[in-house]
Structure formats: C-alpha cells, structure tokens
C-alpha cells in the first residue's frame, strides 16, 4: 500500500523514513560523546573568519541576486543565447509559436 515498483526498482517511503529516523537517532547518540567542556560566548564558539571580527547578522545575509553568480557566470554563453530569446516582445512569441508549428508539421507530414 505504501510503496511503488518502477519496473526497475522499488520505493518504500515508510522504510526510508524509519531508516532516516534510525540515522538521526544514531547521530544524536554519537553526539552524546562530544566535549561539553567548551565555554559559551567566548572565542571557542565564535565563527572564525581568519581572525577578523564576525560581521553583524544583517551584513551576512546573502541577497537573492548574489547566490550562484559563479555558476551563472560560468554558463554566461548559454544564458546570453537563452535570455536573448526572452525578449518580452509579443511578435517574437508568436514567431516562435508559428515556427514550432512549422517544424512539427514538416516532421509529421514526412513521417509514415
């Protein structure tokens, strides 16, 4: 009732959930052996930034546009082309629509 078979394998979320809970319990168990002798609110618990002072939380928040800039920059050639297609012009939208129809019709008419 819970699982599914894919013809290639199977998936049972309840079994996965039980395993996940087991792993979490194991992690918490191991955590009990950790060192509790550290001093709170001292250098021992602060984020280490090459010896520099930790900035305020508001200065640390990475804004939406800045995440993955490296990834996007690496794919800049691809994005240049794809963004160029998204002109926002209705005539371009219609051209793509009609062009797709043309390609589909050619393939279908030539198919047996």
């Amino acid at each position: 009732m819970t699982g599914i078979t894919t013809g290639f394998g199977a998936w049972n979320p309840i079994a996965w959930l039980l395993l996940f809970l087991g792993v979490v319990a194991g992690a918490l168990f191991l955590r009990r052996f950790g060192n509790k002798q550290y001093k709170k609110n001292t250098g021992q618990t602060k984020v280490f930034l090459s010896g520099n002072e930790e900035p305020e939380a508001s200065a640390l928040h990475v804004r939406g546009a800045h995440l993955y800039w490296g990834f996007v920059d690496g794919l800049s050639a691809y994005y240049r082309r794809v963004r160029a297609l998204h002109t926002g012009l209705l005539s371009d939208y219609v051209a793509l629509f009609v062009g797709t129809l043309g390609v589909v019709l050619i393939v279908l008419v030539l198919s047996r």
């Binding site: 508001s58 640390l60 990475v62 993955y68």
Partner: peptide, 11 residues
C-alpha cells in the same frame, strides 16, 4: 534553496 535563503532567512 536560493529563493528560500533570500526570502525567508536572514535578518
């Protein structure tokens, strides 16, 4: 994750 981090997390 990007949308979540930008909108929901932070100050």
């Amino acid at each position: 994750l990007r949308a979540f981090q930008a909108a929901f997390l932070g100050p």
